[in-house]
Nucleic acid binder design. Structure first.
Length: 819
RNA sequence: GCGGGAGUGGCGGAACGGCAGACGCGCUGGAUUCAGGUUCCAGUAGGGCGACCUGUGAGGGUUCAAAUCCCUCCUCCCGCACCA
């Protein structure tokens, strides 16, 4: 047989063997403890799997294989997030039906995933575009609809002119479409929304109970944007004396006595009603300009605060004082009430605005409660109230409570909680998505399709060219559109928008527990057994998209009694990116893309796997390096070349060095187990390198060690432990060494713990500085160590007075002499 | 501005109160080779002939002992941002 390392010879063979023997099958209701490890499923693009996927899937697979060896019943599934725009765009360009290209791409993905040796339970594979799956995506839409969480609304929405569809707020990154990067525009359309805002508090609260990266939690907190404050109704007085309610939202009601003006957003509906005749022209001009520069300049924080006086005043209900009303474009209409109270002394923006317009600055909070003469800048911290009538002397937080209470009792205000998060816009004007199962009846309005008629199938024969009109391609298929009302039978029209792809991916992790169920989205008992997901690995780019939506779906299902947990992913890890060799993000245009197929062709899958693990900590970005992968390939080859020499070798005579080998083996078992547990795969590979260097060295010193029991056992332990990382070469060598059965069904080695080191190296410090290292018997006490230290030349020449010195002693580790 | 994270050799990175630079790359020298590649051996933070000294973004502190903990600051990355 071949003695050279030639991965092509055995990688495919072993994968087939594993599949045929169902090594990776997750068994429902097994007595073993369960472990559900999930990776974010891929969008099956035409360009196939890239190394970015590898950075996620290889460590996850290594951990899954490790858990199996630890005796867990592991659920490690894969599927495809198959609905989406690129398939449709490809179809338009090349005239291939999205269904055809999608399923062709999936085949390619499957081939690549297997080539990488990923240990998925293939019996649970599905794509979100399978009718058997999207039937239940539609069913969940109806669940939300029936629970009052899905509704239609006509309003201005973000529209991507390239993708020709509306998008949810979460899917706009820096004013651009998250998928294609085209700047989005506002378009008025009637769209479907999910009431995610109703779950804002629950989504916030749940974050405290899950083991997720702080970064992601903080992004979600930020996005939800909860702020507690009060709404106070000022009375705006029109030119003719008419009073209008002008509510303002503030988190600093404790500064209410410092209000010296009011500012309202240019879009505010009361603007013109609160403008005096002589100011109308000026105000109109200002509003026009403000609205024109709207989307771009108004986003800038640095911009000077501008505004114009409307000529009208408002009454502060706490003081009955009249303050001027300004229109200012720094007031955001969509947040709060679109009107703010101006407190120059205690808000930076108001301070700037007041300076510019010569408005009074009234100090009502000071650090210590003493009067303050002048302010150089706004004092924005909490403090003690002054000049605040009966509330003077109170601390800010206490004052907020009392003032809110006072406003509520007096009927001109109340405590409120505001959120930044908006409802989730889920309709998309595209063909390749899950249909929204709604029928529009002239009499009954939006009626859900009866459950027994689901799924509403996507028709194949459609001109799916998207339009600029905001109408879905499905609208042009009369056979699809025209139907009858399920309630009254009158001619009605089907909803033609499809659902956001994120709706499909918001529940897929549940379907893996019961992927072939045609009676329900899943069996409750199976969900109870498998869920929640114990470990979820995926990119941070989904922080406020997929990860927020999935949590929302889970909470809705929990409230509906379908599941008994309300957080889907117990632990989350974000893998870092693989950058190009130039430290730049990989992209076709930069020409720095690495293709896994090419890498496997050149080095084999195990080298790619080991390199991806070795490249750096799981959660940090790392540049691809051709020299780097060469180094790892050398390691795999060295491992092969050393271990293959044991082929057909039997156990010979005992050798004294065996004890040292056993000691090393035991040490490595402990070290590597800890590294896998902590997902430190980069140092795990280093440990294998150290171990190999050790075995290689003693073998060179005396080739006969190969015939010792300890050496052979060390090699087998090595192979067993590296098997999760490099499954093919481990399996091949295992069999070449005469072992039977798959290495992947073996138990993860446990340290024997019987060998203690007889001698240990003790660090000798003098005044905290390293001066010597000495060998002592393990377990030696201070006195014995000190005797040896005194004999050391390096220590003796320092002339230490040992009687006066103080000693810090850590057994078997260190002695520090403080002289 | 707010929130999160990170600054360690020529490079990727270890160590996360107790030997700074594990492991790998690269580089230097040597062996093998007609040669290139491969493979193997030795060396590789800086300074000094040396014993030693200096070094983990900067400065201070806690400690017998700090890359690691605390404070002040600087730089970079990510997210949010006129949110009242």
């Amino acid at each position: 047989m071949e003695k050279e390392y030639n991965p092509k010879e055995f990688e495919e063979k072993w994968y087939k063997y594993w599949e045929e023997n169902k090594l990776f099958k997750a068994e429902d209701f097994s007595k073993k403890p369960k472990f559900y490890i999930l990776v974010m499923f891929p969008y099956p693009s035409g360009s196939g799997l890239h190394v970015g996927h590898c950075r996620n899937y290889i460590p996850a697979d290594t951990y899954a294989r490790y858990k199996r060896m630890q005796g867990f019943n592991v659920l490690h599934p894969i599927g495809y997030d198959a609905f989406g725009l690129p398939a449709e765009n490809y179809a338009i360009e090349h005239g291939v039906h999205p269904k055809e290209s999608t399923y062709k791409n999936i085949e390619n993905f499957r081939r690549q995933l297997k080539m990488l040796g990923l240990s998925y339970d293939w019996d649970r594979e599905f794509a979100t575009s399978d009718p058997e799956y999207y039937k239940w995506t539609e069913w969940f839409f109806e669940l939300l609809f029936k629970r009052g969480l899905a509704y239609q609304d006509r309003s201005f929405q973000w529209w991507c002119p390239h993708c020709k569809t509306v998008l949810a707020n979460e899917q706009i990154i820096d004013g651009k479409c998250w998928r294609c990067g085209t700047p989005v525009v506002k378009k008025e359309l009637k769209e479907w929304f999910f009431r995610i805002t109703q779950y804002a508090d629950k989504l916030l609260e749940g974050l405290d109970r899950i083991d997720w990266p702080e970064r992601i939690k903080s992004m979600q907190k930020n996005w939800i944007g909860r702020s507690e404050g009060a709404e106070i109704i000022f009375k705006g007085i029109g030119p003719d004396g008419t009073e209008y309610d002008l509510p303002v939202f503030t988190t600093r009601i404790d500064t209410i006595f410092g209000v010296t003006f009011l500012a309202i957003a240019p879009e505010h509906p009361l603007v013109m009603k609160l403008t005096r005749e002589d100011k109308v022209e000026e105000v109109k001009k200002y509003i026009e300009e403000a609205l024109r520069k709207f989307e771009t300049e108004r986003l800038s924080t640095e911009k000077e605060k501008t505004g114009v006086f409307t000529g009208c005043f408002a009454r502060n209900p706490f003081t009955n004082e009249l303050v001027p009303i300004y229109v200012g474009d720094y007031v955001v209409y969509s947040y709060g009430t679109g009107a703010v109270m101006g407190v120059p002394a205690h808000d930076e923006r108001d301070f700037q605005f007041a300076k510019k317009h010569n408005l009074p600055i009234k100090v009502v909070i000071s650090k210590d409660g003493n009067p303050v003469e002048t302010l150089e800048e706004a004092f924005t911290e909490d403090g003690i109230l002054i000049n605040s009538n009966g509330f003077s002397g109170l601390k800010s937080d206490e004052a907020r409570k009392q003032l809110t209470k006072y406003a509520e009792e007096s009927g001109f205000g109340k405590g409120v909680v505001r959120y930044k998060i908006r409802d989730w816009l889920i309709s998309r004007q595209r063909y390749w998505g899950a249909p929204i199962p709604i029928i529009h009846c002239p009499e009954h309005g939006a009626v859900p399709v009866p459950e027994e008629e689901l799924p509403v199938l996507l028709p194949d024969e459609v001109d799916f060219t998207p339009r600029d009109t905001g109408e879905s391609p499905l609208a042009n298929n009369p056979d699809f559109v025209n139907t009858t009302c399920p309630l009254c039978g009158k001619p009605s029209k089907r909803e033609t928008d499809t659902q956001d792809g994120f709706a499909c991916s918001s529940w897929y992790f549940l379907r893996y527990a019961d992927p072939h169920n045609d009676k329900a989205p899943f069996d409750k008992e199976k969900i109870k057994y498998w869920l929640p997901v114990d470990l979820y690995i995926g990119g941070a780019e989904h922080a406020v998209m997929h990860l927020l939506y999935s949590r929302f779906y889970t909470k809705v299902m929990y409230d509906a009694g379908l599941i008994d947990f309300d957080e889907p992913f117990k632990k989350l890890l974000n893998q870092g990116m693989i950058l190009g060799a130039d430290h730049q993000k990989m992209s076709k245009s930069r020409g720095n893309v690495v293709n896994p197929d090419d890498v496997i062709k050149e080095y084999g899958a195990d080298t790619l796997r080991a390199y991806i693990l070795f490249i750096g900590p799981l959660d940090t970005d790392a540049p691809w390096s051709t020299e780097g992968i060469n180094g790892v390939n050398r390691f795999i080859k060295r491992m092969w070349n050393l271990f293959i020499q044991l082929e057909n070798k039997s156990i010979g005579k005992e050798k004294p060095i065996e004890k040292e080998i056993e000691l090393m083996t035991d040490k490595m078992i402990v070290k590597i187990t800890e590294q896998v547990e902590k997902f430190k795969f980069n140092t795990m590979i280093s440990s294998f390198m150290e171990w190999l260097n050790f075995l290689s060295k003693i073998m060179q010193e005396d080739p006969e060690v190969m015939e010792t029991k300890a050496f052979r056992e060390s090699v087998l332990t090595f192979l067993t432990m590296i098997a999760p990382a490099t499954p093919f070469v481990s399996e091949e060598l295992y069999h070449r060494l005469g072992e039977t059965g798959s290495i992947h069904t073996k138990e993860w080695p446990k340290p024997k713990g019987i060998y203690k080191e007889e001698y240990v190296t003790i660090i000798v410090q003098v005044n905290g500085k390293l001066r010597d290292k000495i060998e002592v018997e393990a377990g030696s006490e201070l006195e014995d160590v000190l005797d040896l230290v005194k004999k050391s030349d390096k220590i003796a020449r320092l002339g230490i007075d040992f009687d006066k010195a103080k000693y810090i002693f850590v057994k078997d580790k260190l002695i520090n002499i403080v002289a």
